[in-house]
Structures are given as structure tokens and as C-alpha cells.
Amino acid sequence: MSAASPTHALLLATLLFAVGMLGVLARRNLLLMLMSIEIMLNAAALAFIAAGARWHAAQGQVMFLMILSLAAAEAAVGLAIILRLHSAGRPTLDADTGNRLKG
């Protein structure tokens, strides 16, 4: 099995990003939308890794670590918002019902 070339990695990243975005757009469950966002973030991180491997530069991996921490923070905030909504008396996780801010 040959080592994955950067091109392959980029292809995989694109695929992952599309899956994640599709999840965000199609899913109505807030938890699953959050997970889809994680997938998109990881796709972006993979693209950085691939770029770092292509040009033999350390910045790619640095950016990966950065995105990792960003994802953790984002997950924490997102989950906190969901918990807050829940404690405010919204029993459902359906994102489409939270549309009271429409213009």
C-alpha cells in the first residue's frame, strides 16, 4: 500500500467537508448538526495536514493543533447553548423550531 499522496488527502478532505456540510444543511437535530460541524472542521484540518506534507512545512501541523483546540471550544460552547435551551424549557432538539428571530 503506497503512502497517501497529498492529492488523495485533499480529495478525502473535500469529501469529508461535503458530508459535514450536507449534515448541517439536512439534519434537524441540533446535536447531529454540531457533530457535522466537527466533521467539517476536521476536513479543514486534514487539508492543512495535506498541504503541510506537500510542502514539508510545519505550519500545517501547527494549524491542525489550532483547529483541534478551536473545535473543542466550539463544541463546549455549542453543547452549553443546547443545555441552556433545554433548561429554559425547550424539550426538543429540533433546530427548525427555534425561529423566533425571523424578520
Partner: peptide
Amino acid sequence: FGRMQSGQVR
């Protein structure tokens, strides 16, 4: 343009 502000996150 106000119609765009539907409140739907998705």
C-alpha cells in the same frame, strides 16, 4: 430582504 430572515438556522 426581511423575508430572508426566516429564523431557520439551516
